[in-house]
């Protein structure tokens, strides 16, 4: 554990909590892509199956359980509890265009051709593109509430901190997880455009982020 990974995990946790509380308090999931949230729940489910096979640390186990619970709770709020507020017509990204290539790639490019390992690889590849339905929805509607942009900001910050973590681990431990690093770089790139809009629009102005 190093400071970058710890801060990264905390940003990830903050992002998920921000989203959950936003929906819970406003009793609305307007502007939120349910598809992205289902993909994240799928990411955590397929990655954290090792909860049953290997113990790493109390921290690791607790965080995995918390992420899983919050991911499914968020999906529950969007699709069941506050379903009437869900903008399904704006959430029109075709997730099969992500799932099929990601599933195919995880069979082709993995560390070991074993069920748990393929599922772990699938989760890594899927996480790198899981935010796309949300970004697509913002592009389509042309705006996002500031609280939604704070969620995306913390999610992007988590990714950026993980890149720093990998640089650190490479130099201190010689650790290099090629699949995670390549996917992580791809994932972080998706946030760059958003970061630019966040700093120029949301932080300087107030209220919603509107696209030019």
């Amino acid at each position: 554990m190093n400071i970058f990974r710890l801060l990264g995990d905390m940003c990830h946790l903050v992002a998920i909590i921000i989203l959950f509380l936003k929906i819970w308090r406003s009793k609305s999931c307007a502007g939120i892509s349910g598809k992205s949230q289902v993909l994240f729940a799928l990411v955590f489910t397929t990655r954290y199956l090792d909860l049953f096979t290997s113990f790493i640390s109390v921290y690791n186990t607790v965080m995995k359980v918390v992420f899983l619970v919050l991911a499914y709770a968020t999906v529950y709020l969007i699709y069941l509890r506050f379903r009437s507020t869900y903008n399904s017509e704006s959430d029109s990204f075709r997730v099969e265009f992500l799932l099929v290539p990601v599933a195919g790639l995880s069979f082709l490019e993995n560390y070991a051709f074993a069920p748990l390992e393929i599922l772990w690889t699938f989760s890594i590849y899927l996480e790198s593109v899981a935010i796309l339905p949300q970004l697509f929805m913002i592009t389509k509607t042309g705006e996002a509430e500031s609280i939604t942009t704070h969620y995306l900001f913390f999610l992007g910050l988590y990714r950026a901190l993980y890149l720093a973590n990998w640089v650190w681990r490479y130099h201190t431990e010689g650790f290099f997880d090629q699949i995670a690093v390549v996917s992580g770089v791809v994932q972080t790139i998706f946030y760059c455009d958003f970061f630019y809009l966040y700093f120029t629009k949301v932080l300087r102005g107030s209220g919603k982020m509107t696209l030019p």
């Binding site: 990974r5 690791n60 560390y111 993980y162």
Partner: peptide, 10 residues
């Protein structure tokens, strides 16, 4: 190639 490390990150 041989798979040797645990996935210790979240």
């Amino acid at each position: 190639r041989e798979f040797t490390f645990q996935h210790d990150e979240l």
